[in-house]
Amino acid sequence: MENISAQITQVAPLEHYILLSAVLFSLGVLGVLLRRNVIVMFMSIELMLNACNLLLAAFSAFHSSAAGQVFVFFIMIVAAAEVAVGLAIIVMLYRNIHSIDINELSKLKW
């Protein structure tokens, strides 16, 4: 495929990428704080990870170094592993309490 942009700066300034990632990241944080549904919280975390990915790719382009993009792959690996474990935990939880509301989890309190 032909390259979309010959000069990276002609797409958008780096600040905009950072800002975009920051917004997405904050949205993820908001989701984790706001929601009580474990799965949605988990998805919000995925959103945060993706904000990181996007920013890494942008930095990688602006620095002209491939390391950033390679890092993204590792984040994906981690995300995949986390999803496998996380969803397993959620399913296990659901089998026991038939709910995935985080507020149901209040057995351990002092």
Binding site: I45, E82, I89, L93, L105
Partner: peptide
């Protein structure tokens, strides 16, 4: 134990982010 796993996992992933 379930609760521990869920909490640990969610907050752990959150912190990793």
């Amino acid at each position: 134990s379930n609760e521990a796993a869920v909490k640990y996992f969610l907050l752990g992933a959150f912190a990793s982010a």
